[in-house]
Design a binder for these strands. Structure first.
Length: 783
DNA sequence: GTAGGGTTAG
């Protein structure tokens, strides 16, 4: 528990009140142009720079502005914070044109600022080209817009052009340029050029500017440069010290950072925050929590940064109690209006599994919102919270609200939305999300590309997943892992393995999840030797310790290949017999290889570990039933009944024209139930003529033959497939999702259905995809 | 200068 005794601040804070701060403010107010400025030398930049069209110089003394223009320019500046949609920006633009102000350079600059604020740097760039006399404001606004839009390289190119032919940059220009240097993956050369430029142009006394350079070096990991600059700075403020403390932390030199913290003349709340978030960056949550405690004991009051970070600690350590305490303090200290604090609260409650609390914080936040971009942060935290807690429907509903209310939908929200579509398996909405991604131009976002790739695969369209992967403009291990997993789950083991090899050739280092996929691919393809080799290489070459998921894949690998005894020995040798999931993998293998004895033994282990889990009772009961050992099967059912174990109801769903239709076994609640049942019966009649026989031996229940068959015939997946065929034109592929694993009889029947109706049928079950075409399934009847 | 919301897993 956190002792909430808040000590009075020991050191003066806020630089504006200190004498040093006042001199700083004076310096800040001093226009950069009054400093001695020698003529700038050419700015060296690596890479191909394409320069904008040359600036046309008009008369050196433009006529004084008219009142209407000045007023409109003022209006533009005032609205730049609140105008966040392209529609509003366009409206202002057309008002300007209609009023005959469209040709004025200052109006164009104002509109440029507005377009940048809406994230439409492309349109801002067009306006920039039209401006006749580009002043430092126009250049800086566009460079800043490019930096915010992630177009760092373009920002640097603009800066080079500005030095060559534009006005002299000011402090703000340079800090944007340094952001671009960091964004370009820490372009040290470009950053050093800026530093050189600052020194040559006599602005080295400007502590604010030098802090930007210092921060740049720290963020690029150029520790020696950071230390050097810090040492030579004539004037250092609290920010300089904090950047330096952060630099030590980034180096992993925690002792060094603490030493600096102790010697700093500015031990204010910011230094504490820097120290705490530095620990977080290294994943040292427990230590961060300790420092937080110390801060409560002896440090200054928490500010909004401290609360945000503290909430992240609570969510990483899943400490709901701590989170609630912080929430109380936030309300008491009046920080509830801060958008970051609120989104951290939403996130903390979601990650601790209390979505109810998240959504009440979210609903309460409407009173603080002002319709600006900050609003979208709370929205996107809430959308993510729903997705993390498996509530995809609510997540997508909230996304719809965002569009309706005109809240900015950014790449974060879209990533969560794509994940929601993946979970729900709804291709049409997924495609709509993808359209938004393309329209809003988020093609450089690796998170989003991975989520879209995964979405297509999980919605059954491997082709679109591949296309999204190929079209992605950025790449990383997660994107590769998504596509490898897509092929693996669609039964295309050879391609999955090939992609894994290709990834290594591209020098992308696989992570633990990549290995899960490639091992699972080996298991499904029956490649025992290869699987073993990957398992060994993972540990020896990549230093990844196997997790339960990896062990499960290995048991699956051996079990599926029929090496049941080896699989059993593996479980015992590796000391993983406490994990139910590995036994479940072995039980599945027993079913595939019809080894009743081993299955009974495995089931005993499982029942001990998980007495209330229905899955293994059902699996074993099916094995007995398939052998017509009705007594054993009924004994199992009695055990299930005794222990109050219930089977999770099987559900299948299909999306037709933007509506999801859900079915359960023998379910007649659908409005077209009568038509569906009669169509399915006639279809099964046709299948029987083709040679299909109901696998009545696979039914769980020991009932009369005819009754058993009718239960099988109306399993949820068959109903959904039948409805899909009835309600879509010929030749259109059918995509059905099921919450449990597909039943063996349905699997057999759907193979025949794909042949009888000349349809491709894609069925997603709880673990993988089955792609039926011409009487065959992509899983090779091996799942 | 520092904070927040996002992707891959039998």
């Amino acid at each position: 528990m956190l002792p909430w005794t808040i000590a009075s601040p020991a050191t003066p804070t806020g630089f504006s009140s200190s004498p040093r701060g006042r001199s700083l403010l004076r310096l800040l107010r001093r226009p950069i142009a009054t400093l001695p400025l020698p003529s700038p030398r050419p700015f060296s930049l690596t890479g191909n720079a394409s320069f904008p069209t040359p600036v046309l110089r008009s008369s050196p003394h433009p006529s004084p502005p008219e009142d209407a223009t000045t007023d409109f320019v003022r209006l533009l500046k005032a609205s730049s914070r609140s105008v966040k949609s392209l529609l509003d920006a366009g409206l202002l633009h057309s008002v300007a044109v209609k009023a005959g102000l469209g040709q004025d350079d200052r109006v164009r600059t104002g509109l440029l600022r507005i377009y940048c604020g809406c994230g439409r740097v492309d349109l801002a760039g067009k306006l920039f080209d039209e401006i006749r006399e580009r002043d430092v404001l126009a250049w800086t606004l566009l460079i800043s817009g490019r930096a915010r839009a992630g177009q760092y390289r373009e920002g640097l190119e603009m800066f080079a052009a500005m030095l060559a032919e534009g006005p002299l940059p000011n402090r703000f220009t340079l800090s944007c340029v340094l952001k671009c240097c960091v964004g370009c993956g820490g372009d040290l050369g470009a950053g050093k050029s800026v530093h050189g430029w600052v020194l040559r142009n006599g602005t080295e006394f400007d502590v604010v500017l030098l802090n930007s350079v210092l921060d740049f070096y720290a963020k690029c990991g150029a520790f020696a440069c950071t230390k050097n600059l810090f040492r030579t700075m004539n004037e250092k403020d609290a920010i300089s010290w904090n950047i330096m403390i952060g630099a030590y932390l980034r180096q992993g030199d925690i002792d060094g950072s603490m030493e600096l913290f102790r010697t700093s003349p500015y031990q204010d709340v910011s230094s504490w925050n820097t120290i705490i978030s530095g620990q977080m960056e290294h994943g040292l949550h427990a230590i961060a929590l300790q420092i937080l405690h110390t801060m409560v004991d002896m440090g200054p009051r928490f500010n909004q940064f401290t609360f945000s970070t503290a909430l992240v600690i609570a969510s990483r350590l899943t400490m709901l109690d701590l989170g609630k305490q912080l929430h109380c303090q936030i309300l008491r200290t009046g920080h509830a209006g801060d958008v970051f604090v609120r989104s951290s609260l939403i996130d903390m409650y979601s990650k601790c599994g209390d979505v109810h609390a998240s959504s009440s914080v979210f609903s309460g936040s409407s009173e603080h919102t002002d319709g600006t971009v900050t609003e979208s942060i709370s929205f996107s935290a809430m959308v993510a919270g729903y997705v993390q807690n498996g509530m995809s429907e609510e997540a997508l509903e909230l996304l719809r609200d965002m569009f309706q209310e005109g809240v900015k939908v950014d790449q974060f929200t879209l990533t969560s939305a794509a994940a929601a579509c993946s979970d729900a398996g709804i291709l049409e909405q997924g495609m709509q999300v993808h359209c938004c991604v393309v329209k809003l131009g988020h093609v450089f976002d690796a998170f989003l590309s991975s989520a879209i790739t995964d979405m297509y695969a999980k919605c059954g369209s491997l082709e679109d997943a591949r296309k999204a992967f190929d079209d992605s403009r950025v790449t990383n291990v997660v994107l590769w892992t998504s596509i490898i997993g897509s092929y693996a789950s669609h039964g295309r083991a050879a391609e999955a393995i090939h992609l894994f090899e290709q990834m290594s050739e591209e020098k992308i280092v696989p992570n633990e999840i990549s290995f899960v996929h490639v091992l699972s691919a080996c298991a499904h393809a029956g490649l025992v030797g290869k699987g073993h080799a990957y398992f060994k290489s993972m540990q020896e070459d990549h230093g990844i310790a196997p997790s339960v998921e990896h062990y499960t894949c290995m048991v699956d690998l051996l079990g599926r290949a029929g090496l049941l005894d080896r699989a059993k020995d593996f479980i015992q040798e590796e000391g993983i017999s406490n994990y139910p999931v590995v036994w479940r993998a072995l039980l599945s293998a027993c079913r595939v290889h019809s080894d009743v004895e081993m299955a009974s033994w495995v089931c005993e282990q499982l029942v001990q570990l998980e007495p209330c889990e229905s899955g293994h009772y059902i699996l074993l009961s099916n094995i007995h039933a398939s052998r017509r050992k009705w007594e054993e099967a009924s004994e199992l059912r009695r055990m299930m009944h005794e222990k109050g174990v219930r089977k999770r109801p099987g559900q299948s769903w299909i999306q037709i024209r933007n509506k999801v239709h859900t079915f359960m076994v023998g379910d007649k609640s659908h409005p077209e139930a009568a038509e569906i049942y009669s169509y399915l019966e006639s279809l099964i009649g046709r299948l029987k003529e083709m040679g299909y026989a109901s696998r009545t031996d696979l039914v769980l229940h020991d009932v009369e033959e005819e009754q058993r068959e009718s239960i099988l015939n109306f399993h949820s997946e068959k109903l959904a497939v039948a409805y899909g065929i009835m309600s879509t034109p010929k030749g259109i592929p059918i995509r059905v999702m099921k919450n449990l694993r597909v039943c063996a009889d349905c699997h057999e029947a759907i193979k025949y259905i794909s042949q009888a109706t000349c349809r491709e049928i894609i069925l997603r079950d709880a673990y993988r995809f089955h792609r039926f075409s011409n009487g065959k399934c992509s899983c090779g009847d091996y799942w």
